[in-house]
């Protein structure tokens, strides 16, 4: 059926199918216990991050290790904009007076977080997109380290090593699922757009792409800025989910988990980003249960701290070795898409 649809229509059908899947998961989980709902909410935020990362990494072929900085930027903007002025004045005395006085609704803070991340992505993307291949990936890694060092040391503005508390609770399962669906829709529209096609063309063959007049830097920059917007929004949602912001969250661990989701699922398709997030979430949940230890009736199997991470990294290695293009092999659901 897919071959009779135009790329745009196929992409829209794909987005609708994926969003229906998200909606079904949301409906089922909303009937479950509070603990399971939190796991599902966390997964929806991760889905937003991974699909956001996919918009850049999947279409450009340049793996990014720096997107968690955008997540951090979103989270800190949520803290700067929505914590009440009295708490802000004591936690973050280094903020300008007008910002301390400001107390926005979390929804406004979330959009602002996305915009700030986009602005920063534009600033860093201008030089970054000059780089190709492995140098570009290292450049994004440099971004991660720079922002982590800043978040964890700029104490008067970010709270430094301490934690920022007092964020209003805002993120619940429907909101997180809604933003994740919006991100999926945006990713589908982008990859079926002319700009998306140009960027994927440059991924497949940069020299041929340049020869037909594609400005690879420009296309990469567009994708980088758009993807930062969604990851930034996810950051604000994450902050309103945990209701604290700690610099240590926005570093290697979360980078590893999100990159694992993207790579295990298949970095080159939107379906891959979604499947990878679902797979890794279920798998880590399973390992987490094991980590706690469980009672087999006649014997108690002791849990081990670190088991979850060990299992996850082993799974990722196996995926790389046996399915280097991920679970989906870079194909879209039902062949609905143009990237293979």
């Amino acid at each position: 059926m897919a071959r009779y649809l135009s790329p745009k229509a196929a992409s829209l059908v794909l987005a609708v199918l994926l969003i229906v899947a998200v909606a079904v998961v949301t409906l089922v989980c909303s009937q479950l216990s509070g603990g399971s709902q939190r796991v599902a909410t966390d997964a929806m935020i991760k889905l937003t991050i991974v699909v956001g990362m996919y918009m850049f990494a999947g279409n450009s072929g340049v793996l990014s290790f720096g997107h968690i900085s955008f997540l951090g930027l979103g989270a800190y903007s949520a803290a700067w904009l929505t914590i009440s002025p009295s708490i802000k004045a004591s936690l973050m005395p280094g903020l300008p007076a007008w910002l301390i006085a400001l107390e926005l609704h979390p929804a406004a803070g979330t959009v602002a977080g996305g915009l700030l991340a986009s602005a920063v992505a534009l600033l860093f993307g201008l030089p970054l997109t000059r780089l190709a291949g492995i140098a570009a990936s290292i450049g994004t890694f440099a971004l991660l380290v720079i922002f982590y060092a800043t978040f964890s040391n700029w104490t008067p503005v970010t709270g430094g090593q301490g934690s920022l508390y007092g964020l209003p609770t805002f993120t619940n399962l429907p909101i997180a699922a809604g933003v994740a669906s919006l991100t999926i829709l945006a990713a589908a529209l982008y990859q079926a757009s002319a700009a998306g096609f140009r960027l994927r063309g440059s991924r497949e063959d940069p020299i041929a792409a340049r020869a037909v007049g594609i400005d690879i830097r420009r296309e990469r920059l567009i994708a980088f800025v758009i993807s930062a917007f969604f990851v930034g929004m996810a950051g604000a949602l994450y902050a309103h989910f945990l209701t604290v912001v700690v610099a240590g969250e926005f570093y290697l661990k979360l980078t590893f988990i999100t990159v694992a989701m993207l790579v295990i699922g298949g970095m080159r398709s939107l379906t891959g980003a979604v499947v990878g997030t679902a797979f890794v979430t279920l798998f880590s949940e399973l390992l987490r249960q094991t980590e706690r230890g469980f009672d087999l009736g006649f014997v108690v199997v002791g849990g081990r701290l670190g088991l979850q991470e060990v299992g996850l990294s082993a799974a990722m290695l196996l995926a790389l070795i046996f399915r280097p293009r991920g679970i989906t092999g870079g194909r879209e659901l039902g062949g609905l898409g143009t990237s293979r």
């Binding site: 340049v62 793996l63 990936s137 990159v259 990722m316 280097p324």
Partner: peptide, 8 residues
């Protein structure tokens, strides 16, 4: 490709 090796 180097990116897969890096991830590995």
């Amino acid at each position: 490709d180097p990116a897969s090796l890096l991830v590995a």
